[in-house]
Every structure is written in C-alpha cells, then in structure tokens.
Design a binder for these strands. Structure first.
Lengths: 162, 162
DNA sequence: ATTGAATAATTCGTATCTGAAGTAAACTCC
DNA sequence: GGAGTTTACTTCAGATACGAATTATTCAAT
C-alpha cells in the first residue's frame, strides 16, 4: 500500500483477480525471504562448522528436551517425514553427537538425546547461529520486526490444521 | 505486542538477550509458515495433477517468458543450483512439457520453453494453484495481508545481496 | 589471431526429503 | 486372552538439492 505498489482503484470484477494476484505475490515474497535467509544460514553453518542445516535443526530440538525426544516427535516438530528423521539420526549417531535410548515401558520407541559432546558442539554453533539471525533481521526496524512477528503469528494460526 | 507476547520491561542487559531470542523466534515463525503452506501446495499439486512443486515452479517461470529462459536464468530465479535445474528440465523434457531451443548467437546456451502441451497443462494447474493460495491466505484480514506483504518487502530488501 | 579469463551447461557424488510398504510392539474391545 | 487396529519406527525407491569438477563456447586484450 505505501511502499511497494500503487493502490489503483479497479472495478469489482478486476478487483477480484487483483486480490488473487496479491495473495500469490504475498506467498512468493514470503517464500523468497525464507529461502534467502536459509541459504545464508546453510552456507555459514557449512563453512564455519561443517554442519548441515537439517542436522543443526534436529540438534536444536533435542537441546531443549531434557529427556530427549522420540522419532515421531522429532518428525512432527521438524515437519519432515519419519524416514527422513531416521536417516538424520543415523548420521548424527555415527558422528557421536546424539544417541538412541530405550524408553521404559514402550519397546517400540526411542528417546533420541544429545551426547555430552553433541550438546557441547551444539551450544557453540547455536551461539553463532543466533548472531547470524540477529544480523539478518537487523535491517528491519524494531517496530517492523515486532509487527512482522505478530502478523506471521496470525497467519500461522489462520492456516488449516496441519 | 498485542496478541502474542506480553511486552515485559527488562533491564538493558537482559533486554539484549531478549532481542536475540526475538530475532530467532521471528525467523522460526516465518520458516514454519512457509513450510506449512508449502506442504499444503505440494500435497495438492501431487494429488490433483501428479505434479511436483519444483517442476510446477519451473514451468511457472517459463509461462511468463515468451522466448523461454536460459538454464542460468532459471537457476537464478528459482534460487536453486544449476545442476538441479538440469535434472528438472531433463525430466520435463522427457514428459514433453518443455523443450530446449538453441539460442542464436550463443552456442553454449539453451532457451528452455514450454511446449504447447506444457503450456496448456500449466495453465490448468495454475488456475487451481492460485485458488489454493487465495484460500490459504484468506484467513488473514485484507489489511493484515497488505501489511504483511509490505513488511516482507522491507525485510527482503534489507537482506544482504544474494 | 591467440592466449587467458569468464560464462553456460552438464556430470557426478552425496545429502536431504517424501511417501509407501514393512516390522514390531502396544492398545481395544469384546 | 485373542483378533483387529493403531502406533513407532525402519526400509526402500525415487525425486530434489548442493557444490565441485568438467566441457564447450564466448569474451577480452593485446
């Protein structure tokens, strides 16, 4: 309305199509922002720590879970398929960063936990990761950032249940 | 500020850490929104047309380019690697939806174009695709959508050059 | 004209991801 | 307590993705 496109008055019919394109433009812009940030983070994680973003994300989930998380819970939180989680965890286990522990009372499930070494490695990465995010979002005024956060919250809640 | 978190006053030092977490939260929320929408679109494209999102996106870029696009331009616009574009185009060629044309005056390059059948297929998909996006963003008030679009525009421009 | 640098694509190895199918354990309900 | 269902996880095939190395062509600069 103010700084990206003139708000030309249109007849109702054209207006409808216009709204459609607006929705599409909103979506494409959100996708672009996400991909740009992701690309930066991915490159920096790789360059600085030789770590991939998916593995970092998985470790981030575990760091806040004292007793670890089940595979299914990881899958839900990371929003990726179960098969994917299996292979990510396999690799992190191979690297000695996480471990599978038996869950008492349910022999089907595992609790995936950070190893001490994994936790230490994660904390070092997380400190820098957070600084990168602060840097990447730092071009926005504080008020804009707050507003964006708020609007994305509304948007998220308005989406159909996953 | 209004509907997602109380704005507790904190001393300057704690405030700094608080801002950091805010930046992280903003980023994670944006990522979540993007992934939720993407998941919906992906599932619907697949279910309705047996089409993948990356291929759809590639065709979408071609639809607006009368004379086609070069591989490198596709790579730039889709924000994916060149090797990836090669394999996507290969498959679309195999399916008869796009074709590689020689570029007069540069024997290194191709112009990737939709075939008539590809164009027809794309237009049918695009109509529904747009309706899905309108539906997914429809839970937001018009004013919120506009504002979100605007803020994302500012954010995008504030990011370091890709 | 010729050499050297830059550009356009492709190829290849590996990682990530999905979704469907498979296995094992836990639950349900009569 | 046993059949059928659900849940937890793995496996597998195929698609998507990156990035480094390769090939072919063009451009630049003498």
């Amino acid at each position: 309305m103010t700084d990206d496109h003139a708000d030309i008055a249109l007849d109702p019919e054209t207006r409808l199509a216009h709204d459609d394109h607006d929705a599409l433009r909103l979506w494409l812009r959100m996708l672009t922002c996400t991909m740009l940030v992701e690309r930066h983070i991915r490159a920096r994680l790789k360059g600085r720590f030789g770590m991939s973003l998916p593995r970092f994300d998985l470790m981030a989930q575990l760091e806040r879970a004292k007793d670890g998380l089940r595979m299914s819970e990881l899958s839900r939180r990371l929003m990726v398929s179960g098969g994917n989680v299996t292979s990510l965890v396999d690799q992190l286990v191979r690297d000695g960063l996480v471990e599978r522990r038996d869950v008492p009372g349910d022999r089907r499930a595992f609790a995936v936990c950070l190893t001490p070494r994994g936790r230490e490695a994660f904390l070092a990465m997380a400190r820098e990761h957070e600084a990168w995010i602060v840097e990447l979002t730092g071009g926005l005024a504080r008020s804009d950032r707050d507003r964006l956060h708020q609007l994305l919250g509304r948007f998220k809640r308005s989406l159909p249940a996953p």
